[in-house]
Amino acid sequence: DWEDIVRFLRKLFELGEEVVIGDWHNHHREEIKRLIEWLEKHF
């Protein structure tokens, strides 16, 4: 279910905002944000 995936990604992203998950999070933050925005537009 796409909504569950979007919710999971958003939760992960919000957690990442508070607890910076090292370089991985910083590197992928923009991609995650773009992916969430893309999914919201399409689903």
Rank of each mutant, 00 (worst) to 15 (best):
V19N: 05
W38M: 04
V6R: 05
E3A: 08
V6M: 11
K33Y: 10
I36P: 00
E40R: 13
F13G: 01
W24F: 09
E40F: 15
F43Y: 05
L12A: 02
I21F: 11
E18V: 09
E37K: 08
K33G: 05
R29D: 04
G22Y: 02
H27S: 10
L15R: 04
R7V: 02
E31L: 15
W2E: 01
V20K: 10
D23W: 13
D4R: 12
H42I: 13
D1A: 11
E37Q: 10
R29Y: 13
K41V: 09
E31G: 11
E17F: 15
F8W: 12
I21A: 11
L35D: 00
N26K: 14
F8N: 02
N26M: 08
E18N: 14
L15S: 03
R34P: 02
G16W: 15
H28K: 05
E14L: 08
E17M: 15
H42A: 10
L39I: 08
E17S: 11
V19M: 10
N26E: 10
L35V: 06
F8T: 02
V19I: 13
E3V: 10
L12W: 05
K41F: 10
L39G: 01
E17D: 06
K33T: 07
I5W: 14
W2L: 03
W2Y: 03
F13S: 01
I36D: 01
W24I: 09
I36F: 14
R7E: 07
I5E: 00
E14W: 12
G16D: 04
R7P: 00
N26Y: 05
R7C: 13
F8K: 03
K41P: 02
H28D: 05
R34N: 04
V20R: 05
D1K: 10
N26T: 11
V6F: 15
L9W: 04
W38T: 03
H27W: 13
W24G: 05
W24Q: 09
E17H: 13
F8Y: 07
G22F: 03
V6I: 13
N26A: 12
I21T: 10
E14A: 12
E18W: 14
F13A: 03
R10P: 00
D4Q: 08
D1W: 15
K11Y: 14
F13N: 00
E30Q: 10
I5S: 00
L9V: 02
W38Y: 05
I32T: 02
E37S: 11
L39P: 00
K41D: 06
K33L: 10
W2M: 02
D1I: 14
R34V: 10
E30C: 13
H27L: 11
V19E: 04
L9G: 00
F43T: 04
R7M: 04
E40K: 13
F13E: 00
D1H: 11
R10M: 11
K33W: 13
G16V: 15
I32A: 03
R7D: 03
H27Q: 07
G22P: 13
I32H: 03
H28F: 15
W38Q: 04
E18M: 14
I21S: 12
E17W: 15
H28G: 10
F13H: 01
E3S: 11
E18S: 13
E37W: 13
L9F: 07
H27K: 10
L15H: 03
L12M: 03
K11W: 15
I5K: 02
K41Y: 06
F8S: 02
D4P: 09
R29N: 09
V6P: 01
W24K: 09
D4F: 14
D23Q: 06
F43K: 03
E14K: 08
I21K: 14
H28L: 15
D4M: 10
R7K: 11
H42R: 11
E40V: 14
R29S: 12
V19G: 12
I21W: 11
D23G: 10
E30I: 09
L39R: 00
R29A: 12
V20D: 08
R34K: 11
K41L: 06
V20H: 09
K33D: 04
L39V: 07
H25Y: 15
R10I: 07
E17A: 15
I21M: 09
E37R: 11
R34M: 11
R29F: 12
W2G: 01
R10Q: 07
N26D: 14
E14M: 13
V20Y: 08
V19D: 06
I36T: 04
F13V: 03
D23K: 04
R10K: 08
V6N: 02
E18T: 11
G22C: 14
H28E: 04
V20G: 09
R34H: 09
W2N: 01
L39W: 07
E18K: 13
F43G: 02
E40Y: 15
H28A: 14
I32W: 12
L12R: 00
V20E: 05
W24E: 06
E40Q: 14
H28T: 08
D1G: 11
E30T: 10
I36G: 03
I32E: 00
D4L: 14
I32L: 11
W2F: 07
E30G: 05
E30W: 10
W2Q: 01
G16L: 15
K11G: 04
G16K: 07
H42F: 15
H25F: 15
W2S: 01
H42P: 03
V19Y: 03
L12F: 05
E40A: 14
W24L: 09
V19P: 04
K11D: 02
D4E: 07
L9H: 00
H25V: 11
I36L: 05
R10W: 15
H42V: 12
R29C: 14
L35P: 00
I5F: 14
D23Y: 07
F8M: 08
I36M: 06
K41G: 08
H25L: 15
G22E: 10
L39C: 08
W38I: 05
E37F: 07
H42Q: 06
L35H: 01
E30F: 09
V19R: 03
G16M: 15
E30V: 06
W38D: 02
K11L: 13
D1Q: 08
E18C: 09
D23T: 03
E18H: 14
L9E: 00
V6A: 06
F13Y: 09
D4I: 14
L39Q: 01
E37N: 05
I21N: 10
N26F: 08
L15Q: 02
R10L: 13
E31Q: 11
I5T: 01
H25A: 09
I32Q: 01
R29G: 08
E17R: 14
W24R: 06
L15P: 01
I36R: 02
E17G: 12
H27T: 08
N26W: 10
K11I: 11
E30Y: 04
I36H: 02
E18F: 12
H42Y: 15
E17L: 15
E3N: 06
W38C: 12
V6T: 03
R34Y: 10
L9I: 04
F8I: 08
N26Q: 09
L15D: 02
H27Y: 07
K33I: 12
E3G: 08
K41R: 12
F8V: 03
K11R: 13
N26H: 13
G22S: 04
F8L: 07
E31K: 13
E18I: 11
I21P: 10
E17C: 06
H28W: 15
E37D: 07
L35S: 02
L39E: 00
L15K: 02
I36V: 07
L39T: 01
E17P: 13
L12C: 13
K11M: 13
R10A: 03
G22T: 06
I32D: 00
I5L: 09
R10N: 03
I5M: 05
R10E: 02
R34F: 07
E17N: 13
R7L: 03
R7F: 12
K11N: 04
H28Q: 06
F13T: 01
W38R: 03
L35N: 01
E40D: 09
R7N: 06
V20T: 09
I5N: 00
E14I: 06
E14V: 05
K33S: 08
V19Q: 07
H27M: 11
D4K: 14
L35R: 01
R29K: 10
V6D: 01
L35G: 01
E3C: 13
L15M: 06
R10S: 04
K33E: 08
I32P: 00
R10G: 01
E14C: 12
H28C: 11
E14Q: 12
R7G: 03
L35M: 06
E30M: 12
G16T: 11
D1N: 09
F8P: 00
V20C: 06
V20F: 13
E40M: 14
G22H: 10
I21R: 09
R10F: 08
F43C: 15
E30R: 10
E37A: 08
L39K: 00
L15V: 04
H27E: 06
D1P: 14
E30N: 06
K11H: 05
E30L: 11
L15C: 12
L35E: 00
G22L: 04
I32N: 01
I32K: 01
K41Q: 07
I32V: 05
F43I: 08
E14N: 06
R10Y: 14
R7Y: 03
I21E: 09
F13I: 05
L9D: 00
R7T: 03
E31A: 12
H42C: 12
H25E: 08
